[in-house]
Amino acid sequence: MPGEQGGELDWLLFEQAQVLGWGQAVAALSPGRVRHLLATGRWRRWCRGVLVAHPGELTRAQQLWVAVLSVGSDAVLAGLSAAAEAGLRGFRREPIDVLVPERHSTSTARRRLEPGMPGVRVHRTRSLPPEQVQAARPPRTGTARSLVDAAGWARTDDEARSVIAAGCQQRLVLPGEIIKVVEELPRARRRALVLETARDVEGGAEALSEIDFVRLCRRYGLPRPDLQERRRDAGGRVRYLDAYWRRWGLHVEVDGAYHMEVHHWEADMRRQNEVWLAGDRLLRFTAHQIRHHPAQVADQLQHALTAAGWRRATRRP
């Protein structure tokens, strides 16, 4: 970190992880001085218009600065790249997503700068209000906007839903913040899917498998369950039920791959026994069954609910 008496260039190098645009460099030094630093190998021209004030490999922070500065002064990190800087875990880091206003001359494209630098994917937008941009270094879209964009640019609908669910589950953003951003972007890609996912999360379904389960119930005309229901076990500890129809005493567990581990399996068996001892019915499904065999799951749910007294509403002629 530069000292209190550090010059403008020192602060700029500190704030931008030793990466400068050509215009920034010549504004702080003379063009001749910049060329001398490049010629002697103390600085390096990484790509057109972008300089790095050391000859070595780039750090992650420097890669992000190169990506933004190589696109233009009005570019910001966006999508998964911005969300990762905000703390999102479990998703790809490349290519680096950069967002620019629509008036920018660069069209949506994937760009490769130099070996050792990830690809840069540039997107244009008609709407980027100042309140949706964080004054971070480098600048990036706010977390809610980043997740909405990432969902729109995702390769599949499942990936898009996973991004929204993970952002809320990891406590990076509230579902209402996602909904607010989407409502301000009437032309956002996958708009309906993102709104539906955020509203499902807002209702309690935080894991993607639980969101799939709510969608399944809606699709097959089954009543919506209560999600993340609190209950105390025999030891007095608070437990959360994945899905629970309190009126009909039906409890559903949605299992992920981690349930193959022995200690999780035994804990689940104890919890299952406690549910039965309390007088409730219990059904268990895997996330794979919910996604790929929804009709079978819905059939078993309907039988269990019917046995407990639920009746499907009949339509009036």
Rank of each mutant, 00 (worst) to 15 (best):
R89V: 12
E102F: 13
I96A: 08
T125H: 06
D74G: 08
T125K: 01
P139E: 11
S73Q: 14
A75P: 11
R126N: 10
A75C: 11
V76A: 11
S81G: 11
A78E: 04
P118H: 00
V76M: 05
G119N: 12
S81D: 10
A83F: 08
V120D: 04
L77Y: 10
R112S: 15
E102W: 12
S73I: 06
P95M: 01
A83T: 10
A84N: 12
A86G: 13
T125L: 02
A136N: 02
D97S: 15
T125P: 04
E131Q: 14
P139I: 00
P95L: 02
S81N: 09
E102V: 08
G90L: 05
P95K: 02
A135W: 06
A84D: 09
H123R: 10
R111G: 02
A109G: 13
L113A: 02
P95Y: 04
T106G: 08
G87A: 06
L88W: 03
Q132W: 14
G79I: 06
A136I: 03
R103P: 06
V98D: 10
A83P: 10
Q132K: 00
R137L: 15
M117G: 01
T106K: 12
G72T: 01
P95Q: 02
R140D: 09
R126I: 00
A84Y: 01
H123S: 08
V122D: 08
S81I: 09
V133S: 09
P101M: 02
I96H: 05
V98Y: 08
G79A: 13
L88D: 04
H123C: 00
L113T: 00
H123N: 00
G119K: 03
V76F: 02
S105C: 04
P129D: 06
V98K: 10
A86K: 05
L80F: 03
S73V: 14
F91Y: 08
P95G: 07
P139R: 15
R126W: 09
T106H: 13
S127N: 10
L128H: 02
F91C: 07
G87S: 10
P129Y: 01
R111K: 11
R121A: 14
M117R: 07
R121I: 04
R137M: 13
Q134W: 12
V100G: 07
A83R: 10
P138I: 05
R93V: 07
G116I: 06
E94I: 05
E131F: 04
P139H: 07
R110K: 13
T108A: 14
E85Q: 15
